[in-house]
Simulated scan of single mutants.
Amino acid sequence: MEEKFQDLIPYDFLQLCYYRQNLQNAANASFTYLVKHAEDIDTRINFELYISDANVDTQQLEDLEEKTFGVTFKQAMNSYEKQDHLKSMKHLEQALEEYFNAHDDCRLLCEGHLFDPTFGISSVAEMFLRSFKCKNDCRMKLNIFYMPQDEKKIIDFPALCYSFLYDVHHGANSSQKALENLESWILLDPGNSVAQEQKKLFSSDVQETEVLARN
């Protein structure tokens, strides 16, 4: 039962319940369910049906289980699009702090598996295994963002934040901060070709600046 709630299964039933009563709520429920079940064709078809109705405001779509850091990240993106570097930096840094707090909370909740009264002494190893798996899953639980309109799934929230922090600091000519965030981005996502290319360009810019300074 606990796993069904964590997988947002109730929202799949809820969207059907709302279908005849409130299409905006039905759209929100299906939107929330699709966060973790983007591959569910039936729910996606229902979602498209809901948002095609004139009574549904797509600008008011809401992930009913959205974490605080997700809301803050959206604020950061609004500031980023307006090229407001200071506000964007502030919100991105706040989103990262909120994410890591949520990650700590998730891992702490996993400790509950160590105190499960239904487990006997012979199951101690299994308790520790469940706790370890639960903690290991926290990253994936917190790193899924799904935008049905764009069909995008983001699976590394901190790396995403660091990529934008690099960009805004670089745009604000804050070289040291830009480099720090670029290195954090690469550390979390070493296979990202864009990040690697940015590092080459950044190093090239620094070398050029040093040459000009000597001359």
Rank of each mutant, 00 (worst) to 15 (best):
L114A: 08
E97C: 12
L182D: 03
Q15T: 00
P158T: 09
F47Y: 04
F132I: 11
R44E: 09
S79Q: 15
F164C: 08
Y50K: 04
D137C: 12
V211S: 10
N101T: 10
L23F: 05
T118V: 10
T209L: 14
S163A: 08
T118C: 08
M77T: 12
L64N: 03
G120Y: 02
D150N: 11
N25C: 06
A195Q: 03
S122F: 13
M77H: 12
D205C: 08
Q207K: 14
L64Q: 07
V35C: 02
E48M: 09
L16H: 03
K177Y: 10
D42P: 07
R20F: 06
T68L: 14
D137M: 09
C106D: 03
L187T: 15
C17R: 02
T68D: 14
R139Y: 13
S52G: 07
N173H: 15
I9L: 09
C110P: 06
M147P: 14
N143E: 05
L142G: 03
A95H: 08
D12C: 08
E111H: 11
Q149D: 08
D7A: 02
Q59L: 14
E39A: 05
Q75C: 12
T118I: 15
Q176T: 14
F31M: 02
S79V: 12
M147R: 13
Y18R: 01
E180A: 11
G112P: 04
L64E: 05
A27W: 01
R214T: 15
H170F: 04
I51Q: 02
Q60M: 13
I154E: 02
F145K: 13
F5Q: 02
V211F: 07
G112L: 03
L34Q: 00
T32N: 00
L16M: 05
L201P: 11
E210D: 05
D53P: 10
F145T: 12
L92K: 08
R107Y: 06
T209E: 09
S131R: 14
R107S: 09
F119N: 10
S52M: 09
G120D: 08
F157L: 06
F202Q: 07
L165C: 03
L129W: 13
F119Y: 11
R44T: 02
P158M: 10
E39R: 04
S30T: 00
E126A: 13
A213D: 09
I51Y: 08
K177F: 14
F119G: 11
L114T: 01
D84C: 11
N25G: 06
G120F: 01
E180Q: 12
Q83M: 15
I155N: 07
G171W: 07
H37A: 01
D105H: 13
A159F: 07
D105K: 15
E65N: 05
L92H: 10
L114K: 02
P148F: 01
R107P: 09
D63M: 07
V35Y: 05
K67H: 13
S79H: 11
T209D: 07
S163M: 06
D63S: 04
F69D: 07
A159I: 02
R107I: 07
L23M: 04
R139K: 15
Q198E: 08
D104F: 12
K67I: 05
E98D: 05
Q6E: 03
M1W: 10
N101D: 13
I9H: 01
M140R: 15
K177R: 13
L14F: 00
Y166R: 06
E97N: 14
L14G: 00
K153I: 10
F164Q: 11
S122H: 08
C161S: 11
F100D: 12
K36F: 01
L187R: 12
